[in-house]
Design a protein around this nucleic acid. Structure first.
Lengths: 338, 338
DNA sequence: ATGAAAGCGCTAACAC
DNA sequence: GTGTTAGCGCTTTCAT
């Protein structure tokens, strides 16, 4: 690989001029610029990232700290990563991936070793030990999730309450008098609980507001039997085309188990009862027949997070609130969000 | 943040000595070492990554190039990333994530900007434009997947043929005379096709070897109806506890649709017919009842890939073959692999 | 418009 | 044992 010194030699100029050309500074004679560009192309020159980072105090990297072990939501994580990666490149940044296992120390490492210019903290739980540390760093940190104490950090998350409300709205509008939420097992995932609980609250409020009959059926564990039992509870007096029950299913896991259970009972979603899933659109579309979906679209959240990252890197002043709840898209039939 | 110069000043020594202490070189007086360590702790010093990279010509980063858009297999990717990240840290490396959208140019960028010490190429398709470029880089590259031409690059993948064979073995051993593979729609994912085809070949060979009746039922598209149709083809004369059909389902997508279809037909996997899935163990276990599973465990493959990466970085000589097919674990009932 | 030179933070000969 | 010094590849004053 070649250096800017090589380019300078080949172009018959000094390193300074090469640097000027690279960084697009004005005041380089067109002819000189041409020679330099030619030399760069010929030598396949690209500036050394380490040297640049050293000189500029900018690594051009955004670190993303991901929870791997704990998260229930294995499906939801990928669109995040994808969005981070593809948002970073156009802004001339790369993505450094670290696991949440590194914990608070990992954050300090990122900062002290100057490995990145900013950090995205994924899947923050209600009480998260990383928050206080993150707040002290001299790097911009953006949090995905809603911790109990935000410590002044900008937090982004889906507006789960609104999502729950939208789901209920959709059901009520389409003639359902009874609305049930199928809760997920609380198990050992504080984050998932956090957001499922938020969905439930939003759904419950909306149901009351709309005067619908509301109920919450908890799934005790992630088995078919438990889901079937919860379904029994939810359906209660039964469900039919005349008086269908509307089901809100805010957990992918539960949804995957629910579908076969419904099939074996000859209950067709969309006919005998309605199911509003809460998952990425493409998953809902993949089900057959496609489910109604109160979108939990991670891409929107991830994009918002990256907006904040680059705003911070640009030095934009942060706006007041710092709690960014991304509204889920309107439901397919056009129920407007709120 | 503080520099090694600061540490030197506080400890009353030269930068050299600080460097010696950091890098654990011998020949530092115990008392001096103590003073330096104390100063480092006090200043919360950690060496600047950029400067180190510049000096050492080592970035301590492994780049992973991920396919995001194309891959069908959204679930399978995460365990890979997770494994990469957690394998890298103990060896003092970080993971740089880039998307396959960057293509061959992205590889050149990684190499020329000296952004990483090694590259892992994920989800390589049969004819992959990145391969010839990757082969020319002066960085170790490890390929996950089996391209048509390996160009001398070490390639790692699951031994899908063996996986297919194991699935059939399991079915035959447990008394199935008829074995069917439910193929996935070929659609627009060359990689997925590549590996599903390999499963089919392995399964077919094994069936012939074992004298079982073998058939392949292709699913034309990812809909319930198409899966149901394929199931009809597969079952043919029907299936029963006396003469059950054994189904091999090498695609997660198809599996997800198949389960509700079976349920609506009152066909219980494990009773009326057997289903051997081909997916991660945890997904098979999540189904109810748990499916037999000819494991497609990405973690093993990812680990092998990282073994190769670090072997290369250590300068270990590569062993001959360079095609590393990871044997799937023996099936639950203990059928030995091969 | 271009070049000479210093320095970002670290390491490694080479002196002593 | 420890310090002096040069240099990794880049940017950027400051001269010219």
């Amino acid at each position: 690989v070649s250096t800017s010194k090589d380019v300078a030699r080949v172009a018959g100029v000094s390193q300074t001029t090469v640097s000027y050309v690279i960084n697009g500074r004005s005041g380089v004679a067109p002819e000189t610029r041409r020679r330099v560009e030619e030399a760069m192309a010929q030598l396949q020159y690209e500036p050394n990232a380490g040297a640049r980072a050293l000189k500029n105090q900018r690594t051009q990297a955004v670190a993303v700290m991901m929870p791997f072990g704990l998260t229930v939501d294995r499906l939801g994580v990928l669109p995040f990563i994808e969005t981070f990666a593809s948002r970073a490149r156009p802004e001339n940044h790369d993505v450094l991936l670290v696991t949440a296992d590194e914990g608070p120390d990992g954050l300090l490492r990122l900062s002290r070793q100057r490995l990145c210019d900013a950090i995205v903290l994924m899947d923050v739980v209600t009480e998260d030990p990383r928050i206080p540390i993150a707040a002290e760093l001299d790097l911009p940190v953006v949090v995905v999730g809603v911790p109990a104490h935000r410590a002044g950090l900008p937090c982004v998350d889906l507006d789960y309450e609104l999502a729950g409300a939208l789901a209920v709205d959709e059901l009520v509008m389409s003639g359902h008098r009874r609305v049930r939420v199928l809760g997920a097992p609380l198990s050992r995932t504080p984050y998932e609980v956090n957001c499922i609980r938020r969905v439930q609250r939003g759904a419950a409020d909306a149901a009351i507001r709309r005067g619908a009959d509301f109920g919450l059926a908890s799934v005790s564990e992630t088995t078919s039997a438990a889901v079937a039992a919860a379904l029994d509870t939810a359906l209660g007096a039964g469900t039919s085309a005349d008086d269908p029950v509307g089901l809100v299913v805010p957990s992918r896991q539960v949804l995957m188990l629910l579908l076969p259970v419904l099939a074996s009972r000859r209950l067709r979603p969309g006919r005998d009862l309605s199911v509003v899933a809460q998952c990425e659109d493409d998953m809902a579309a993949a089900a057959d027949p496609p489910l109604s979906n109160a979108s939990v679209e991670p891409r929107a959240v991830a994009n918002r997070a990256m907006d904040l990252v680059f705003a911070a890197l640009r030095g934009d002043p942060r706006d007041g609130s710092d709690l960014h709840l991304v509204a889920p898209p309107a439901s397919p039939d056009g129920t407007p969000p709120s």
